[in-house]
Design a protein around this nucleic acid. Structure first.
Lengths: 339, 339
DNA sequence: CTGAAAGCGCTTACAG
DNA sequence: CTGAAAGCGCTTACAG
């Protein structure tokens, strides 16, 4: 722990503390000869810069806070990865918090971010009713960016995509395949805006095609494999079972797939299953999953880029970026050939 | 950014700076009345504690650095999650670094951790030849813990499991199923110790059962789905193809599974496939994957616990914890019925 | 190009 | 129980 400080390097190199600092951080303000001397001293004594002290003194921070719902769903992994990569390039460190879709935890994490004096924060969605607290951050002058949502009209910047449109498109695709009873297995839409929009998209598509909404056909749960399987099992035991399932998260879809196999149902012949996210596994399950591709990595990359720009400019005006999603047609859905 | 400081709260509350600090961090050193007064002032002015300044002043840190190979492989997600959960409980923040199995990146991350003056670091494995640098950390008095490896005899503490033994057991299981030509698809064993041990386990099991090692049957690659698929395709096109595949990572195994389907091969009737890790997906693929269960969450939990203990005691003597792995027999392997 | 000095926002002996 | 003061390890105007 007893690390050597700039002060000591200064003494050893026979220069002032200021010169040592400059040799490291503003090399051009110092004679090459002096600098080399200082650097050599650092080398010899295993000097390690203290970023925390530097941040404090400069009164600016070089850490970015990012929240994700859970590291357990791999779909967030690629946006997180992208953020980390870019941040690292630009000299920022990342601190991460898992909200578990829980309001209280999320708030605690955000509090912690503030205490750490993060330079900015990226929120991977956020719990409904959290806006007040988040606006707090903004009022405190901390650049904030929400990802995975499209938030036009809010003071909160966002880089995301149109969850409504994407879910609408998938539902419509299923309808075009002549399905009329379409089950929906979906994450915590009563808690998370982004998920709510997927629900709305499903419902609107139904409505626009004159299909009655049937609440028995929709199951809300956590977006994990097990819950998908369980939901599928329930839906398939309905007296008048759905012919297609839209699982609004690939985790759920893959869980559903496994339930189908276990029930002896062939996908897509006996029942079609569509997902949402296009996680890596989607292309590798059996049958390969028809899903909507979310540009997760690009979202992370862009978010980090814009956030860092805002940090460097010292301000962020609300901006909204909406990326495109794609329908990825693989083999888990087919035309309904029944009555 | 212009946050209010303790100094200002002191002025507003009519007390000294010291009292403000104590009201927050050592409530028992201050009259309830005074404390309440101070706390109210903080409330009214949206005071937010500055953890970075606190750390600097106290000359101890409350952040823990953790490296993982890649956030892309979900198997590391659960140990990371466990670490985060416990750390959060104990008032630590986590900074994360993705090494991508790259020596240089890993080194840069470790450097960054030092600059941030982390209180301790947890390494999810490490690249071979990195030991020197890591010992540096230890010499600097930073508690370090390696997870996913078992490192008896090193000055580096570890909580992991026996990669050799686990791989040996799975290989032996396959042999007990009368397989003699067992392919191995495996991660970067020439770079990562833990993976090397799996390789050794495979090879030893073969040897102990008088089966010749055939290097044509082993393929080294990145532990990602695509590579598993590609490797499987290659192995299946061999003139004398293996009857069973041991994929020493579930990602690889699931990739292999998908290749099998695409080639029209039934698993396990035509070819058995076994994995390693027991990621969530393993139980949900088709057929459910026979694999070795790694206690990922428990590893993370224990590692965080021991690291924090070491941090609090101010020292860490090398300790080694070795958890058990289990063979999880599902349906992707069966007895070989050929010649 | 270099140095002396003030300051970042806290904590903690030391006195009282 | 409370306060004045020194200090954590840097950065950065300000002078020279």
């Amino acid at each position: 722990m007893s690390k050597i400080t700039m002060q000591e390097i200064a003494r050893l190199a026979g220069v002032s503390l200021a010169t040592v600092s400059r040799s490291l951080k503003n090399p051009n303000l110092v004679t090459p000869k002096t600098r080399l001397q200082v650097l050599r001293m650092m080398e010899e004594n295993n000097y390690v810069y203290n970023a925390a002290a530097g941040d404090l003194s400069r009164r600016k921070s070089s850490v970015i806070g990012v929240t994700i719902p859970t590291t357990r769903n791999p779909i967030f992994a690629s946006s997180t990865l992208a953020i980390q990569e870019l941040a690292q390039e630009k000299g920022f460190s990342i601190i991460l918090g898992n909200t578990k879709y829980d309001n209280a935890i999320e708030q605690q994490i955000l509090q912690n971010f503030q205490e750490r004096r993060v330079a900015g924060v990226i929120l991977t969605g956020f719990t409904l009713h959290q806006e007040a607290f988040i606006k707090n951050l903004i009022r405190a002058g901390i650049p904030c960016l929400v990802i995975w949502e499209k938030l036009n009209g809010t003071p909160l910047s966002s880089v995301g995509f149109d969850n409504f449109k994407a879910a609408y498109a998938m539902t419509e695709y299923l309808i075009s395949l002549r399905h009329r009873r379409i089950g929906l297995i979906i994450g915590p839409f009563s808690k998370v805006g982004r998920v709510k929009k997927r629900f709305d998209g499903y419902r609107s598509a139904l409505e626009d095609h004159n299909i009655d909404y049937d609440s028995d056909l929709v199951i809300e749960n956590e977006p994990v494999l097990y819950d998908g399987k369980e939901a599928m099992t329930r839906l398939m035991s309905l007296p008048h079972r759905p012919t297609a399932i839209f699982a609004a998260s690939d985790m759920l879809a893959i869980g559903a797939l496994s339930a189908a196999w276990e029930l002896g149902l062939k996908v897509p012949q006996d029942v079609s299953i569509a997902g949402f996210d296009d996680i890596d596994f989607a292309a590798f399950c059996y049958p390969p999953l028809t899903t909507v591709r979310v540009p997760s990595y690009e979202i992370g990359r862009l978010a980090a880029k814009y956030l860092i720009e805002a940090i460097e400019q010292g301000s962020m005006r609300a901006r909204h970026y909406c990326l495109e999603t794609d329908l990825i047609i693989r083999s888990s859905c087919c035309e309904f050939s029944g009555e």
